[in-house]
Amino acid sequence: MTIDPRPSVIAERLKGVKRVIAVTGWKGGIGKSVTASTLALLLAKQGYRTGLFDLDFAGASDHLVLGAKGLFPKEEKGLEPPVFEGVKFMSVVFFSENKAVPLRGANVSDAIIELLAITQWGELDFLVLDMPPGINDAALDVMRFAKGAEVLAVTVPSVLAHDVLERSLALYRRLGVPVLGVVENMSDGRRPAGACAAIRRDPKLEAALGRPAALLKTAFARDLRRAAAKAGLA
């Protein structure tokens, strides 16, 4: 007999979290990390107790979006995420020294379960999860352990992204996972097909990455705030 004890405490670790928002999308490079990180900053700025968990282990980049450097969780009956710009932040980069994390699926699953079991989030209004692209071990684990997680799907104005998105939404419906809405990133301004809101392509966004105050002043952040409101967040 071998029992993995860690899943038994995950619900306990998340019991103080009112809403878990999984920012997801089925293609890489469509702006999930910038969306998730900026959403967390926006929610914190509005006074909500907010957490951000970067679950894209292979391509963790929320720390770059935030400009979070020199942080490490505090050991206190587990790990307490460091607070950056009002956001409790957890990422695999705290443990990887910014080196590559070459994990196979089962390893990703183990690492996620480990971090979910030992991270003490405390009381939060929102925990934003930056999901890796697609439905894989990370996504399935989150649906398994973070019961009640709500999906905010990100897409881009491309027939490829939209087609893949349709399939993913059908799967979420089948899994009974609530979808708050679809935001179309990098929009050219036309009315987005199948999305609840468009976030216009913002040429000034890149220069604001790593600077939360500047990031919150971008057109991207303004559009995202409107999109979040439409999706019922804040």
């Binding site: 029992i3 004890p5 860690r6 899943p7 405490v9 670790r13 206190e76 079991a117």
Partner: peptide, 18 residues
């Protein structure tokens, strides 16, 4: 004392399985 979180998982899991 990150061990505390894992110890909690062990005792909780053992009690649940019992």
């Amino acid at each position: 004392m990150h061990e505390w979180a894992l110890a909690e998982s062990v005792i909780k899991s053992a009690v649940e399985h019992a």
